[in-house]
Structures are given as structure tokens and as C-alpha cells.
């Protein structure tokens, strides 16, 4: 098979060209302050290619923060359904293997009891270009969940850094192959791999817990005091869930006047205080640690029952944004230790 390479400048040019096309949506890394965000681009967006990991995940490219799912107008003759905006082809650049690894998980969820055609159609039209990791921090733990800093799961094209200025492009899927063939001009350069380019191996991110042992403990310890101890400092915002590549809860809201309306699928989060509040006023998860317990239990136990996979890719984003100091890795490691103690 042919080898493909692309330089940073060609990549920037390619994304800008694609982003200028109104028939497409392009997402790429954009710098704000000291951080990088995967953002929707237009032809003028300044890309940032020198970063460790984006604050947000690639989730919002495929599962938008909000999305109209129904539009109508009231006429004297009756209700008239209005057309929804078309789902455009998408290119998402700049995620890491921990972002892409969320794709099969989310696909399972959105094609489960109800086929969410908004998500599934976008998934069909998206090309995900992932950057293999060259850096890590103390919050990274993909290897503990079967991931890898150069994992291919969920990507269409995986870029591995070979020089200061460029990547080798690895075709992972048919979509990826087609994308490279369509834009072959940009992938023509041959880059001689430079020495001293950092490369992250699986062993650089040690495995820190066993997820099956974690699940076992969660199943038996719903009322364990550990939950309160590790998560009582959570102040119940949705920052962790909104930057998470696998959190997928949404709400349906209506925005209507007398004569027309739009129904929207809208991000929501189990960590927010009102998520489970009943009309009666009762809230089964009234305390913040109970809500955080739900978040962990869902990812590390309930999801496995349904889809046979932990719903976490180990990207560590939730820990990085949490200024209340709730750290998912610390918590899961604690649970694993408790579980180990129980086994003895």
C-alpha cells in the first residue's frame, strides 16, 4: 500500500479550503487564551497545530450542543411541517485516539432502542482525522480501558508525527481512503522521518486499574460512604459531562410562538441539580455526590450491562476542567483498591 504524508501547512490549507465550502462543516483546533478548542471553522479561522489536548472533545461536531429535530408552522388549514436543515458532510480534525474511541460507543447508544438518525446520518458523513499522541499528562489513562496513544478505533485517518513539520497518514477506514484519494494533492509530499520526534508508546501510560474489578465493586456498593468522601466537593455543574467524548444525555425543548415552533435536541447532564427533579418536587439524586456517583456508575457499570463496554475512553478531560478538584482517575483507582481489598 502506498504511503501518504502531509505537512502542517498543507493540512492547514486543506482544512481552510474545505471550510470555505458552504456545503461542508469543518472542525479543527483553535486557540483561546492558553487552551485549544475543537471549533467549527470557516475559511478565515486561524488553526493551532501545537497543542497537547483540546479542552472539549470532538463530540460536539457529530452530536451538536443543540439541533432542531422538528419545525412547524400553524396555518389556517392546519399544521405545516417545515423542512429541517440538511445534514452536511463533515470533517473533524484534531482529536486524539481517546476522542475517536468514543465513536463506536456513541454509535451503540444512538442505534440502540431508537435509531437516532440525526446522529447516525452525521456519523455516515463524517471523516475523522485523528492525531496520534506525542504528549501525555497525569490525567491520561486510555490504556487502562483498552485504548492506546496511537489507537485507531473510531478514526478514519490516523496521523502519526514523523517530523516537526508533518505527519504520516494512516488510512483506517474506507471513508478515510476515499478522503485521501479525493485530496491526493495535499498528501503527495514525502517526508523523511526525523530523529528525535517524540512518540508515545502504550507503556508510557501505565495501566492503573482493572475496569471489571471496578464494575464489581460498583454493583455492590451503591450506598458505600466512599462516594460521599470522594465526590462531596463536586458543585454540580456540567463542565465534566460537556467536555466528555462519551457523555450523551440530551433534553428536548420547545421554542414556540403562536404561529410557529421548533423542537430542539439539547445537551443535558446528569450532574446538574435539576436533571432528576420530579414535578412533585422530589429529587431522587438531591445531593451532588449522588449525581457524581451516577456519572461514574453509568460509565463503569450500567453501560457495560447494555453494550459490553466501559463508557469512558480515559481522555481525562473531565478532571482537567474540574476546578472543584473531582478527579475521575483518582476515584476509579480508589474504587479498584477497595474492590481488591474485598477480593482478599
Amino acid at each position: 500500500m502506498a504511503e501518504y504524508y502531509i505537512t502542517q501547512s498543507k493540512m492547514t490549507a486543506l482544512l481552510k479550503e474545505l471550510a470555505s465550502d458552504s456545503g461542508m462543516e469543518v472542525f479543527g483546533p483553535v486557540k483561546k487564551g492558553n487552551d485549544v478548542f475543537i471549533s467549527k471553522m470557516d475559511g478565515k479561522t486561524e488553526l493551532c497545530l501545537d497543542y497537547f489536548i483540546s479542552v472539549n472533545s470532538i463530540k460536539e461536531a457529530i452530536f451538536p450542543r443543540f439541533e432542531p429535530i422538528l419545525k412547524y408552522k400553524l396555518r389556517s388549514e392546519g399544521v405545516e411541517l417545515a423542512e429541517l436543515p440538511p445534514i452536511k458532510p463533515l470533517v473533524v480534525f484534531g482529536g486524539h485516539p481517546c476522542d475517536a474511541a468514543s465513536i463506536p460507543l456513541m454509535k451503540d447508544l444512538f442505534s440502540w432502542d431508537y435509531k437516532d438518525h440525526f446522529y447516525l446520518q452525521r456519523l455516515e458523513k463524517v471523516v475523522i482525522i485523528t492525531l496520534a499522541c506525542v504528549e501525555k499528562d497525569e490525567n491520561c489513562f486510555c490504556t487502562s480501558l483498552g485504548g492506546s496513544p496511537h489507537g485507531e478505533t473510531g478514526s478514519d485517518i490516523l496521523l502519526e508525527r514523523v517530523s516537526k513539520d508533518g505527519w504520516q497518514a494512516k488510512i483506517v477506514s474506507e471513508k478515510g481512503k476515499k478522503f485521501i484519494e479525493t485530496h491526493l494533492d495535499f498528501f503527495r509530499d514525502t517526508i523523511t522521518p526525523e530523529k528525535g520526534i517524540p512518540k508515545l508508546q502504550d507503556k508510557d501510560i501505565p495501566v492503573m486499574f482493572q475496569s471489571d474489578r471496578v464494575k464489581k465493586w460498583i454493583e455492590k456498593n451503591f450506598d458505600h460512604p466512599l462516594w460521599e468522601e470522594v465526590a462531596s466537593n463536586c458543585w454540580s455543574c456540567a463542565a465534566c459531562t460537556y467536555v466528555c467524548p462519551t457523555c450523551h444525555c440530551f433534553d428536548i425543548t420547545d421554542d414556540a410562538t403562536m404561529w410557529e415552533g421548533v423542537r430542539t435536541k439539547n445537551w443535558d447532564a446528569c450532574t446538574l441539580p435539576f436533571f432528576t427533579k420530579h414535578a412533585s418536587g422530589h429529587n431522587p439524586r438531591s445531593q451532588s455526590y449522588e449525581r457524581y456517583r451516577q456519572r461514574i456508575s453509568h460509565k463503569y457499570s450500567y453501560y457495560i450491562d447494555l453494550f459490553n463496554h466501559v463508557s469512558c475512553t480515559g481522555c481525562g478531560r473531565c478532571s482537567r476542567v474540574c476546578k472543584a478538584g473531582v478527579n475521575i482517575l483518582d476515584i476509579v483507582k480508589r474504587i479498584d483498591e477497595e474492590s481488591k481489598k474485598g477480593e482478599k
Binding site: 483561546k32 478548542f37 471549533s39 472539549n56 460536539e60 450542543r65 458543585w235 454540580s236 455543574c237 456540567a238 463542565a239 459531562t241 460537556y242 425543548t253 421554542d255 445537551w267 447532564a269 446538574l272 435539576f274 476542567v321 476546578k323 472543584a324
Partner: peptide
């Protein structure tokens, strides 16, 4: 444009103490 409405600003604020925030009301919204 980057606001994702996670309400971290509200939750972290010592003075945002309403039991029900105006943004959580829907009649009227």
C-alpha cells in the same frame, strides 16, 4: 460563542444561591 451552558460559573459562585435559577424556569422561559 464558546459558552456551552455548563453553568460552572453559576455553580461555583458563592452568591448564586437561588434554589431554582431563572434559566431553569420554563413557564415562561
Amino acid at each position: 460563542s464558546r459558552c456551552i451552558r455548563c453553568y460552572a460559573c453559576r455553580q461555583a459562585c458563592p452568591l448564586c444561591y437561588c434554589e431554582r435559577c431563572i434559566v431553569d424556569f420554563n413557564t415562561p422561559q
